[in-house]
Each structure stands twice: as C-alpha cells, then as structure tokens.
C-alpha cells in the first residue's frame, strides 16, 4: 500500500503556551478510512487543519505524496490543497449561490484567480458536478440556492464539492455533529462508500465511538493533544474508549 500522508512529530502551540498537539506521528495509506476520536478540545480539529495548513503547525513535518507541506510556498500549497478535500461540521457553503456553483468551487484550486473570478468552468466539469449531485441524490436541488437545503442535504453538497477536487485525501471535521441521526447515517454512508470506491484515503473526526467503530478501517484516539490509540476498530476496547474520554464520557454517545 502506498503512503499518502506522513506526519512526523507534529506539534501545535497556541500563544506560546497552550499545547494543542504534542508530538503526533501518523502514517496514512491509500484506501484507509481512519476515524479520529476524542473529546471536544482534544485537538482533533487542529490536527486536521495542520495537515492542509488552515492552521500553521508550530513544528514537525507533514508529508503529503512525498512533498513537505510545512515548507511549501503559496503556489505549492495551493496545489497540495487542491488534492485534499475537506468536509466541515457547518458545511461552509456559500449560502447565496446555487448548489451547482458550490460544488464547482471544488475546482477553484486548479484555476487561476481570473478564471475562477469569471466562473470559467469547463462543460466537462459542470457535467461531472451534476453527475456527483445525482449520485448523492440531489438531482432535484441542483439549481436551488444552498441556503434552501436541509442540513443533511447541505453536507452532501459539501461532499460533492470535496469530490470535485479529485482528491487523494479527504479531511472530514465532525461531518455529522450538526445532523439528526437519520441524516448523519446518510452522510456517513456517502463519505464512506465513495472514499472506499475511489481509493481515497480519509481522516474523519468523530466524537461518537459507535459510529467510528462502524465505519473505520482504523481508529486513532487523541487525548489532550497526544495520540493515545492507533489500531483497528476491534482493538478499541470499552476500557480504552473510557480512557480516551476520561472526564468527558458523556460525549462518547451524545448526538449534538
């Protein structure tokens, strides 16, 4: 299996004091579906954002497809980000634009400022975007405004946007934390099946252990900025989960 992402001794310090991440080492291979579990505030979001440098890591190395992300200049970073899809807890769609436009935003990383500014997407890209929307069951909403959709539908638009990037890796930050259980299941299924089908490696932040166990090929546990568990789902004992969520046990099951 080829390595997609390698993280070496990653540390993130806020304001020279609070340690958000401390010496994280991680290797992600093609086709892996990894859940990152841990209580709120453990550093899950920081970890994901350090990978594509939405947050600048303090020290350590992040190597994506053999390229050092932390040393990349602006142009290189854009190219790296273009190949890493991201899915957000609050969907982060542009509310006033159509669903289709939001999905096409996934192509901006491959376009110049000017081309993107005038929305010069190719017809093939548009067809592909429509195809993705059809695939996730949103064929009737293509020309609706993004803010007219329900939460579950918005998240599926978010997935399509990420897929339009033709990513090698997807980072999903609490993709179902704002959804009801039924929509949450649809969204998890959509992310899981498409990633597996296309061989896209995926890192998903979750706080519900049950869902992590159901979908992952591997689970990572983070507790106060440290990696405390890294193994297959069947190795995650109740005892281990309780250790990871020590003091915040209620979060393990809660659906926000």
């Amino acid at each position: 299996m080829s390595t997609i992402l390698k993280i070496i001794n990653l540390t993130k310090r806020y304001n020279d004091e609070t340690l958000a991440l401390e010496g994280i080492n991680l290797e992600v291979s093609r086709g892996e579906f990894i859940s990152v579990i841990g209580p709120s505030g453990a550093g899950k979001s920081t970890l994901l954002r350090c990978i594509n440098r939405l947050i600048e890591p303090t020290s350590g190395e992040v190597i994506f497809l053999g390229q050092h992300v932390e040393k990349a200049n602006k142009a290189e970073l854009r190219k790296i980000r273009a190949q890493i899809g991201m899915i957000f807890q609050h969907y982060n769609l542009v509310p006033r634009l159509s669903v289709l436009e939001n999905v096409l935003h996934g192509r901006l990383g491959y376009m110049s400022s000017i081309k993107g500014l005038f929305s010069l997407y190719s017809e093939e890209e548009k067809e592909e975007a429509i195809e993705w929307l059809r695939k996730v069951g949103l064929e009737k909403e293509i020309f609706k405004r993004a803010d007219e959709l329900s939460g579950g539908q918005k998240q599926r638009v978010g997935i399509c946007r990420a897929m339009m990037q033709k990513p090698k890796l997807i980072l999903a930050d609490e993709p179902i934390a704002s959804l009801d259980p039924k929509s949450a299941e649809v969204v998890m299924e959509t992310i899981y099946h498409n990633c597996i089908e296309l061989g896209i490696a995926c890192l998903v932040n979750l706080h519900q252990v049950e869902i992590a166990k159901k979908y992952s090929t591997r689970i990572i546990g983070i507790k106060s900025g440290k990696l405390v568990f890294d193994d297959t789902p069947d190795k995650l004992t109740d005892e281990m989960s309780r250790f990871i969520y020590e003091g915040k046990e209620s979060e393990m099951y809660q659906h926000q």
Partner: peptide, 25 residues
C-alpha cells in the same frame, strides 16, 4: 471564517475567497 476556510481548503486564491466566497453573500 467558515466560507473562507472552505475556499482556502480547496486551494482557492485570495481573489477566489473574496469574489466567490464572500461577495455573493
């Protein structure tokens, strides 16, 4: 910062963030 993060995460430029992400709203 939500939409800004989204546009930056796909590899968009500052111009993309301004005109595609924020201006419509």
């Amino acid at each position: 910062t939500e939409v800004i993060e989204a546009i930056r995460s796909v590899g968009g430029t500052w111009i993309h963030v301004v005109f595609k992400g924020l201006l419509p709203t």
